[in-house]
Simulated scan of single mutants.
Amino acid sequence: MKKLFAICLLFLIFACSKEKKQGNMIVQGQIKGLKKGTLYLQKLKDTLVVSVDSISLLGKDEFLLSDNVDSPEMYYLTFDGNTSEKRIIFFGEQGTITINDDVKRFGLNTKIEGSKNQKVYEDYQKMTSKFQGKQLDLFEANFLAQKEKDVKKSDSLRKLSEDYLKRRYLYSINFALNHPDDEASAYIALTDLADANVKYLDTINKSLSERVKASLYGKKLAKFIDKIKNQEDQP
């Protein structure tokens, strides 16, 4: 009996000491200043954000996390509180992705390397952020015009804001059409163009490569388009 217990104990120690198997995506890097806490690698599953890996940092701010990725998709990097207020959002895909940041400005000045779709999405965001900034300026100006009861100026600013919104939609559509081999295009269509005319979504979908169509977001886009068309066909 004692011998059996000793064997079981050795087996348990071996199992606990054995390194966990890494997935086909490695997420590594450094969060400067994060000397103590738990870092979580998360993604959206159905409608819930779930943790797929985590690491406790004790005295060091470097980390290594992993997951198995079938096709590129959005991941989140959070720590401790596990809230949406402080998180790094990035495109995860097979291979090694390096993320460097600072705990004091976590998620605000992140440097991400090793993900092709992340680079494509960052290029897209650089331009759309300019549209968003301009629309905010116009919104504030319109608010002041309304406060001053300047109807003519308010109408002019409203029309200008609508024009910028249209230009942003056109930019998003053209960007997706010009990147048919990147899963980021399907993601952009699903998120930033979800309320666009279905004919534009259909055009984007048809332009995607077969590989992207077979990806997570490619399948979701096709399903989303079919849902809209079915709703439009109903009396």
Rank of each mutant, 00 (worst) to 15 (best):
G95E: 10
I88W: 00
M74P: 02
E85R: 11
P72G: 06
G92S: 06
G81Y: 11
F106H: 04
R87P: 01
D80A: 10
T96V: 14
F106Q: 03
K86I: 01
L77S: 04
T98V: 11
P72I: 02
F106C: 02
D80C: 07
G92L: 07
G92R: 05
Y75P: 02
G95S: 09
T98Q: 04
F91Y: 12
D102Q: 06
R105W: 09
V103Q: 07
Q94G: 09
R87N: 08
Q94M: 10
T78G: 04
T83K: 13
T98D: 00
T98P: 00
D80E: 10
V69W: 04
T98E: 04
V69A: 08
E73I: 09
I88V: 12
T98R: 03
N82V: 05
I88H: 00
S84N: 13
Q94N: 11
I99A: 02
T83Q: 12
T98A: 03
V103Y: 04
K104G: 05
D70H: 10
T83A: 11
T96M: 07
F91M: 09
D102H: 03
I89F: 09
E85F: 10
F79H: 13
N100C: 01
G95N: 09
F79Y: 15
G81W: 08
R105G: 09
G81M: 11
T78A: 14
M74E: 14
E85S: 15
T96D: 09
F90Q: 03
R87Q: 12
K104I: 13
T83G: 14
R105N: 14
R105L: 11
F106L: 05
S71Y: 06
L77A: 05
S84G: 12
Y75L: 12
D80Q: 09
M74R: 11
D102A: 04
D101P: 06
T96Y: 01
D70C: 08
F90Y: 08
N82R: 14
F90G: 02
D101K: 00
Q94A: 15
G95W: 06
S84I: 12
G95I: 07
T78S: 15
T83D: 15
L77Q: 05
T83F: 08
L77C: 07
M74G: 08
D80G: 06
I89G: 07
D102F: 00
I99C: 02
E93Y: 08
Q94S: 15
S71I: 03
L77W: 05
Y75T: 12
G81N: 13
L77D: 02
F90H: 05
D102C: 02
E93P: 09
E85D: 14
F79W: 15
T96W: 02
F91K: 03
Y76M: 11
R87T: 07
G95C: 08
V103G: 06
L77R: 08
T98K: 04
V103E: 09
I89M: 11
R105K: 15
F90E: 05
E85H: 12
E73S: 12
Y75R: 06
K86E: 12
F79K: 08
D80L: 08
F79N: 05
L77P: 04
M74T: 13
R87G: 04
R87M: 12
I99E: 01
N82A: 14
D101E: 03
I88C: 01
M74V: 15
I88D: 00
